[in-house]
């Protein structure tokens, strides 16, 4: 008799356990199903919109990487190939040459090469570029705006919460599909045209 009364509550408990287990399992499955229906097989990656960017220099210091994943890129199709380049030369530089004292770039990452009179080509050495955007600011203020910042995906770790995006004052950062990972200016913008 006493054995029976002992057994019954255990059975009931087991039954409750089992049904709760099933219900919870189904719930997780349901949540999973709903999420899958909203999912994309494609990764989302971080990018900054150069049309919103104000070149505040925060990109260079707020990346989790010791050397920021943000680099300056150059849209050659927009560039005026100016001799007096406001993205390359210090404002009020005495001479237009490649001397360190004339350069705006703090790390000397822009290379100035003579093309033909009066044109000069400017290329970015990404190994040296720190992503401060000083050149981009100069080019945007007085030039064609062909120098601008982009998040470089060979370096970016694609953090779940980008620590630059969090501190961006102009809210220029957003998640973009990995198949269109850059927001480019000029003719190059056709490269990742949204279909």
């Amino acid at each position: 008799m006493s054995g029976k009364t002992l057994k019954i509550p255990i059975k009931r408990r087991d039954f409750i356990r089992r049904s709760v287990h099933t219900v919870v399992g189904l719930t997780i499955g349901g949540i999973g199903g709903i999420l899958f229906s909203k999912s994309s097989s494609e990764e989302m990656v971080w990018q900054l919109d150069p049309n919103i960017c104000i070149q505040c220099e925060k990109c260079s210091v707020n990346c989790v990487l010791p050397h920021s994943a943000v680099k300056c890129v150059h849209s050659y199709s927009m560039c005026g190939y100016c001799d007096l380049c406001s993205g390359y030369l210090q404002p009020g530089a005495r001479v237009r040459d490649t001397g360190a004292e004339s350069q705006l770039c703090p790390s000397g990452a822009i290379k100035r090469t003579f093309v033909e009179d009066p044109y000069f080509e400017y290329t970015i050495d990404e190994k040296l570029c720190i992503g401060c955007g000083k050149c981009a600011k100069g080019c945007n203020s007085f030039g064609n705006g062909s120098l601008y910042l982009q998040n470089r995906h060979d370096r970016c770790l694609n953090c779940n919460q980008c620590s630059i995006a969090r501190r961006c004052p102009s809210q220029a950062w957003k998640r973009v599909p990995a198949s269109q990972p850059y927001i480019l200016k000029g003719d190059e913008s056709n490269k990742f045209l949204k279909s």
Partner: peptide
């Protein structure tokens, strides 16, 4: 101000200079 105009015209090169491509390294493959 936010819409930067093209203040300087695109140059018309006399030499056979070709514009370099803008490199766009891709993210980690899916």
């Amino acid at each position: 101000m936010s819409q930067v105009p093209e203040r300087f015209p695109k140059p018309d090169f006399q030499t056979d200079y070709t514009r370099p491509d803008l490199l766009t390294p891709t993210p980690r493959a899916t």
